[in-house]
Amino acid sequence: MRSDLVGILSIHGTALHGLGFDARAVVTREAWRDCAADLQMAGARFFDITAIDRGDSVEVILVLIDPPATHFSLRASCPNEDLRLDTLSDIFPPAEWGEREVFDLFGVEFDGNPDMTRILQPESSTIFPLRRSFVLEQRPW
C-alpha cells in the first residue's frame, strides 16, 4: 500500500485494517464519495462494487486496486431505514452498472446514478433477493 493512499484514508478519518484481499477501510457515508474521488486521483483503480447485508444495515463494498496488484476495499454502511449512498459512477464509470446490481439485489439506491433501474431482474420486479429479510417462495412439495 502506497503511503499517499494511506494518507488519503487518514484525511477522511479512516485507516486500513487487515491484510491482502481482506484489507479494508470503513468510512462514513458522508466521506464515501470524497474519499473515493481522492483515491482515484491518487491512482487507485476500480475493481468491483458489491455489498453485504449485515442485518440492521447494508455494507457497500468498493474494491479498489492500488497498482500494480494490491487490492483493498472501501466500505460504507447504510442503515436499513435509509438505504441511500452517493454514486461513484462519475468517478469510476464502470461503477454505474455495479451500483445498479447492488440496487437490484440489495435495494441500496445510489444518488446521482444516471440510470438507477433493475439490471439483472425484470424491470417489474419488486424484490431484493440477497437481503437477509428476503424469503424464498415455498415449494408445494
Partner: peptide, 9 residues
C-alpha cells in the same frame, strides 16, 4: 434452480 428467486420452476 427450482428454489431460485429468478428462475421459473
Amino acid at each position: 434452480f427450482v428454489d431460485s428467486y429468478n428462475v421459473l420452476p
